[in-house]
């Protein structure tokens, strides 16, 4: 059941993100919904689900839009993995958990993206990009993540007590 919800979530997010959301940009900057979904699912579930969701979201985005396949998949995969690891140690009910993890993930996403772009011989000035876009996007993503996380936690049946050793 949860798997079905997650697949539906990924697909509908992708379609809405590429068609409807570009109309709702604020100061020309768009929040990265894919990243928010990956981090939120990873926090609520575990690192395994997080990394699989990250891989799927990234691959979908790469296949349809970018010429190079695998960059987004790579970054989302690791973001999902680490967010899942951090999420299992932090309180899931705390509002600050998704906020801070999304904040960190957004910075990590752009740093890694820039690193890949550097090795693939694209030339983009990172300092101006960081000042003009990343700072705003960090705040957007984090605020959206709070709501998405709260909404998803109602949908998922999260096992709170476990007797088995992990």
């Amino acid at each position: 059941m949860n798997t079905f919800i997650i697949v539906l979530l990924i697909l509908s997010n992708f379609i809405l993100e590429t068609t409807l959301f570009p109309h709702f940009n604020v100061f020309r900057i768009l929040p990265n919904m894919g990243l928010v979904i990956v981090v939120s699912v990873a926090i609520l579930r575990d690192r395994k689900t997080g990394s699989i969701v990250g891989l799927t979201v990234g691959l979908l985005q790469d296949t349809i839009f970018s010429g190079v396949i695998g960059i987004n998949a790579f970054i989302y995969f690791f973001l999902g993995y680490f967010a899942g690891m951090a999420g299992s140690k932090l309180s899931r009910d705390n509002v600050l958990t998704p906020f801070i993890l999304t904040l960190g993930s957004t910075i990590a996403y752009h740093l890694f993206y820039n690193l890949f772009m550097f090795f693939l011989n694209y030339n983009i000035g990172f300092s101006t990009f960081f000042k003009e876009i990343v700072l705003m996007e960090m705040i957007y993503n984090s605020i959206i993540a709070i709501f998405i996380c709260r909404w998803l936690s109602k949908i998922f049946i999260v096992p709170t007590v476990r007797f088995r050793r992990r």
Partner: peptide, 13 residues
């Protein structure tokens, strides 16, 4: 029919 999400590139399909 669609725009690339994110703020890095301006591609569409």
């Amino acid at each position: 029919i669609g725009k690339e999400p994110g703020n890095w590139f301006d591609r569409f399909i």
